[in-house]
């Protein structure tokens, strides 16, 4: 369903970000159906071939057939998504469809390779190649689960890091620690961000520069040629002077405020560290998947070389 600006108000609105969600589109359904049919047909043939007393071995005709089918599936899984990603003919949603087919071809390929083995899991090159492919498939599934859960974790951390107004909480805490700026309405206005969108306090023009004075102004007190930096707090007739406002008269209260601020700072800093860690998890799991893919390719090539060493003398001997 395409939403244009004209009719978007008629569509339903949603709230919340559940941990578990699943959206199966039409392309995903077609991919799943094709996978079930292909695996089902291959499985039925496997059962018939096994029970009918044929030569059930990896180097049988059926074994070679499964090996070729599995290799084709893995080639498609590896190349289809990459080709679609670099294609000039791009439309919205096609990359997601290609990603779904990447997953389904990987599943089909692994099933074909298992059938190719016919239950022979001796410590030979083929078994190592199979283990490599299984590790690749498992890393892909874990990656998909992480892709669902980790962004939700990041959103939770960012919810802690940002204030309700969307302001960086460390910045607001730091500003609150500066006595002169605590009640400066102008300072707050500069960072205001209305979550409900009613007010966009900053202008649309990116080149806009405010000519209003900042909260800390440089006053040119030309006393003997010196320029003196004057804080906003001094201009407010020392209303935040701790001695005048009585903050030092109640040091216990002041200490508890400072402790609260330190606890809040630790909370936000912890959330920033966790956010960074989660982002690294997403990034490096993808790199792990690529590394396992390269390892699997290496193991398959090793297996093919081993098989070729066995087959070529046999073929030439027959000839």
């Amino acid at each position: 369903m395409s939403i244009s600006q004209r009719n978007w108000k008629r569509v339903q609105y949603e709230k919340g970000y559940p941990w578990l969600f699943f959206y199966a589109g039409r392309a995903w359904g077609i991919g799943l159906l094709v996978t079930i049919i292909v695996v089902g047909v291959a499985g039925a043939f496997y059962m018939w071939y096994w029970q009918s007393g044929n030569d059930a071995a990896p180097d049988s005709i059926a074994g070679y057939g499964y090996a070729i089918a599995g290799t084709l599936c893995f080639l498609l899984a590896a190349t289809l998504y990459t080709a679609r990603r670099h294609s000039n003919k791009r439309t919205m949603g096609r990359l997601n469809t290609a990603l779904n087919w990447h997953v389904f071809f990987a599943i089909m390929g692994t099933v074909f390779v298992f059938m190719h083995s016919f239950g022979n899991f001796y410590a030979k090159t083929g078994t190592y190649a199979l283990y490599g492919l299984v590790a690749l498939l498992v890393s892909g599934f874990v990656g998909r689960i992480l892709d669902h859960l980790v962004p939700r974790l990041i959103a939770g951390e960012v919810d802690t890091i940002l204030s309700t107004q969307g302001e960086d909480r460390i910045e607001s805490i730091s500003r609150n620690l500066m006595p002169g700026d605590r009640n400066d309405p102008r300072g707050r206005q500069e960072h205001a961000f209305e979550a409900d969108g009613q007010g966009m306090s900053t202008p649309w023009d990116m080149a806009y520069v405010s000519l209003e004075s900042t909260s800390r102004e440089i006053a040119h007190h030309h006393k003997g040629g010196d320029f003196t930096y004057v804080s906003q707090s001094h201009k407010l007739h020392d209303t935040h002077d701790p001695l005048r406002t009585g903050m030092l008269a109640h040091p216990g209260e002041l200490m508890s405020q400072v402790e609260d601020t330190v606890v809040e700072l630790h909370l936000v800093q912890g959330a920033i560290r966790r956010e960074q860690f989660y982002r690294y998890v997403i990034r490096y799991w993808r790199l792990l998947h690529i590394a396992l893919a390269l390892l699997a390719v290496g193991l398959i090539i090793w297996h093919l070389v081993y098989v070729a060493q066995l087959l070529i003398p046999t073929v030439f001997h027959r000839a």
Binding site: M1, I3, G25, G93
Partner: peptide, 18 residues
């Protein structure tokens, strides 16, 4: 729309203005 065209998570067409 370049960002949306490059997105592997997008399943349905959404206009960038919306």
């Amino acid at each position: 729309n370049e960002c949306l065209l490059a997105c592997p998570a997008l399943t349905e067409p959404i206009t960038i203005d919306v």
